[in-house]
Deep mutational scan, measured.
Amino acid sequence: MTEYKLVVVGAGGVGKSALTIQLIQNHFVDEYDPTIEDSYRKQVVIDGETCLLDILDTAGQEEYSAMRDQYMRTGEGFLCVFAINNTKSFEDIHHYREQIKRVKDSEDVPMVLVGNKCDLPSRTVDTKQAQDLARSYGIPFIETSAKTRQGVDDAFYTLVREIRKHKEKMSKDGKKKKKKSKTKCVIM
């Protein structure tokens, strides 16, 4: 069974824990209790493949930012979460993405942009803004509501699919490099 290491990042209060708990335990946590770091595991079937999701729910508070490099190193894919009623959390996505790329030393890291709290009427981040940002990053965008469960499975499952595509691409690139290195030079 394939294991996928997913990391949920975003500013404090955007609903990272609520999304994760909704996926794992099928219930909505409405009281806000700032996370330092929590880890969850769940076995699911995605596109006919049974897999184990190892999900790291991270601290959004700035005082825990020193811990970010460590979990970013171990993560295979990242859910970059903002709240649709919090423009600052949307603007912060850029910083999370840049930090992930720096730590992973790669421009090509599996990510999904997630606009959470889409059940709320007080939207300050337009869907088109988020779609445009995701398009500019070359990553999928999904709106979710941890409260109603809308888009929750889709967000995590899409990230797994992005990781699969990335692994497939990397193995193809690896095979191309191996083929090239088999060419021999004969000096007579």
Rank of each mutant, 00 (worst) to 15 (best):
E3A: 06
E3W: 02
E3Q: 10
E3C: 05
K5Q: 05
K5S: 02
L6Q: 03
L6R: 01
L6G: 01
L6S: 03
V8M: 06
V8H: 01
V8W: 00
V9P: 07
G10Q: 01
A11L: 11
G13Y: 01
V14L: 14
V14R: 15
G15I: 01
K16E: 04
K16T: 14
K16F: 01
S17K: 00
S17P: 02
S17C: 01
S17L: 00
A18E: 00
A18G: 08
A18W: 00
L19N: 14
T20Q: 03
I21F: 15
I21R: 08
Q22G: 14
Q22S: 13
I24F: 03
Q25A: 09
N26T: 06
N26C: 12
F28Q: 01
V29Y: 11
D30R: 05
D30F: 06
D30Y: 04
Y32G: 02
Y32S: 04
Y32A: 05
D33A: 01
D33R: 01
D33V: 00
P34H: 14
P34L: 14
P34G: 14
T35A: 15
T35H: 15
I36G: 00
D38M: 00
S39C: 12
Y40F: 09
Y40M: 14
Y40W: 08
Y40K: 01
Y40T: 00
Y40I: 02
K42Q: 04
V45G: 10
I46T: 10
I46M: 07
D47L: 02
G48W: 03
G48P: 05
E49F: 03
T50C: 07
C51R: 03
C51Q: 07
L52R: 06
L52Q: 06
L53C: 05
D54V: 01
D54C: 01
D54T: 02
D54H: 02
I55T: 15
L56V: 08
D57K: 00
T58P: 10
T58K: 02
T58F: 00
T58M: 06
A59V: 13
G60C: 15
G60N: 15
G60S: 15
Q61L: 03
E62P: 07
Y64I: 02
S65T: 11
S65A: 06
A66C: 13
A66I: 10
M67Q: 12
R68N: 01
R68F: 03
D69G: 05
D69M: 05
D69A: 07
Q70C: 07
Q70E: 12
Y71E: 14
M72Q: 05
M72P: 01
R73T: 12
G75V: 11
G75K: 02
E76G: 14
G77V: 11
F78Y: 12
F78N: 01
L79W: 05
L79A: 07
C80A: 04
C80I: 14
C80P: 01
C80T: 03
C80Q: 02
F82M: 12
F82V: 11
N86Y: 01
T87W: 05
K88N: 12
K88S: 15
K88T: 15
D92E: 13
I93L: 13
I93P: 02
H95Y: 08
H95T: 14
Y96K: 01
E98Y: 02
Q99L: 14
I100V: 12
I100W: 07
K101Y: 08
R102P: 01
R102E: 11
V103K: 14
V103M: 15
V103G: 07
V103T: 15
K104I: 13
D105Q: 12
D105I: 12
S106I: 09
S106A: 11
S106P: 03
S106K: 12
S106D: 11
E107V: 12
E107Q: 09
D108V: 07
D108H: 07
P110V: 03
P110E: 03
M111G: 00
M111T: 03
V112D: 04
V112I: 13
L113A: 07
L113N: 01
V114Y: 12
V114N: 00
V114E: 01
G115E: 03
G115L: 08
G115K: 02
G115T: 07
G115P: 03
K117F: 14
K117V: 14
K117H: 15
C118M: 12
D119Q: 13
D119V: 11
D119G: 13
L120K: 13
P121E: 13
P121K: 10
S122E: 12
R123C: 12
T124S: 11
T124W: 08
D126C: 08
D126S: 09
T127F: 10
T127D: 11
T127A: 06
Q129I: 04
Q129D: 13
Q129K: 13
Q131I: 07
Q131N: 12
D132G: 07
D132I: 08
L133C: 04
L133S: 04
A134F: 02
A134K: 04
R135Y: 13
Y137K: 05
Y137D: 07
Y137M: 10
G138H: 04
G138Y: 01
G138M: 04
I139C: 11
I139K: 04
I139D: 03
I139Y: 10
I139P: 09
F141A: 06
I142T: 03
E143D: 07
T144H: 15
T144L: 12
T144I: 14
S145F: 12
S145M: 13
A146S: 11
A146Y: 14
G151K: 00
V152C: 06
D153R: 07
D154Y: 06
D154W: 05
A155D: 05
A155I: 07
A155G: 11
A155F: 15
A155N: 02
A155W: 15
A155V: 09
F156S: 11
T158D: 06
T158K: 14
L159S: 01
L159A: 05
V160N: 05
V160I: 13
E162P: 02
I163C: 14
R164C: 13
R164N: 10
R164V: 11
K165A: 11
H166N: 11
K167L: 06
K167C: 08
E168R: 04
E168D: 06
M170T: 09
M170F: 14
M170E: 15
K172M: 12
K172D: 10
K172V: 13
D173S: 12
G174C: 10
G174A: 07
G174S: 09
G174L: 06
K176S: 13
K177N: 08
K177M: 12
K177D: 08
K178Q: 08
K178M: 05
K178R: 05
K178L: 05
K180T: 12
S181A: 08
S181W: 05
S181F: 09
K182N: 08
K182G: 11
T183A: 08
K184M: 02
C185G: 09
C185E: 13
C185S: 12
V186A: 09
V186Q: 12
I187A: 13
I187W: 07
M188V: 09
M188G: 08
